[in-house]
């Protein structure tokens, strides 16, 4: 591979007055609406990209709050009902002694969502202003965010499985709480937010070519 410290000078499709397809890479004439190879909609740059990113990110943030405040699980055991939130579930797991699983849930439900909010916000801000992280690092960050987002769904699935499995009438039964819905929404919104981000903007920012 080449030297990764300094990005080699490259000509982008936009700088050459052309449009590159983000689906299949086909290069086309400036005026083209749809890709000749794959018929995807063509945009040299998605001008509304950042707006969409912020809008979805904010929506994700808003529903993430009730996801943490309201109960995820409602356990009734021998007549007693107890609610547990996301964080409460992690604490319970630690008390049970299953540290590994507690870590998985902690990562999937708390670390990944919070990290994603920060990372997407950082990436979106970095388009407009100077930041210390290099283009290449930011691109890697973007790929990580895109890859990792779906794994946050783990906790929603866990709740669904527990709720079907533990239905022992009086002895113990588990019902899903309302937080499961808002958490699932939060994950979906931030996934859409990450997908709306146009990674080409990362590279344009340093080039500064409004060609």
């Amino acid at each position: 591979m080449e030297d990764t410290r300094t990005a080699p000078p490259v000509l982008t499709a936009r700088a050459a007055g052309l449009i590159g397809c983000t689906q299949c890479g086909r290069v086309q004439e400036p005026g083209a609406e749809r890709c000749v190879r794959c018929q995807s909609l063509l945009r040299s740059r998605d001008e509304a990209s950042l707006q969409k990113v912020w809008a979805w990110l904010f929506a994700g943030l808003v529903v993430y709050v009730p996801a943490n405040v309201y109960p995820m699980l409602r356990t009734s055991s021998l007549g007693k009902t107890s609610d547990s939130t996301i964080l409460g579930g992690v604490v319970d797991l630690i008390h049970h002694g299953s540290i590994g699983i507690a870590l998985i849930v902690f990562f999937a439900s708390i670390m990944i969502p919070v990290g994603k909010f920060l990372a997407i916000g950082y990436l979106a801000l970095s388009i407009r202003r100077q930041v210390s992280l290099s283009d290449h690092r930011r691109h890697v960050l973007y790929e990580v965010v895109e890859f990792v987002g779906r794994w946050s769904m783990i906790d929603v699935f866990v709740v669904a499985i527990l709720a079907t499995l533990v239905q022992l009438d009086f002895a113990a039964s588990i019902k899903p709480g309302i937080a499961a819905v808002s958490f699932a929404l939060s994950v979906a919104f931030t996934m859409i937010s990450a997908q709306s981000f146009d990674p080409r903007l990362i590279w344009d920012a340093s080039e500064g070519d409004p060609a």
Binding site: V10, L11, T12, A13, R14, A15, A16, G17, L18, G20, C21, T22, Q23, C24, G25, R26, V27, Q28, E29, H139, P199, R200, I202, W203, D204
Partner: peptide
């Protein structure tokens, strides 16, 4: 490639991630 002597467009590919030709 230089701006002036771009070949046939079918011989080029733009990186789907960063738009480099």
């Amino acid at each position: 490639p230089k701006l002036t002597d771009l070949p046939d467009l079918a011989q080029l590919i733009a990186c789907p991630q960063c738009d480099a030709l």
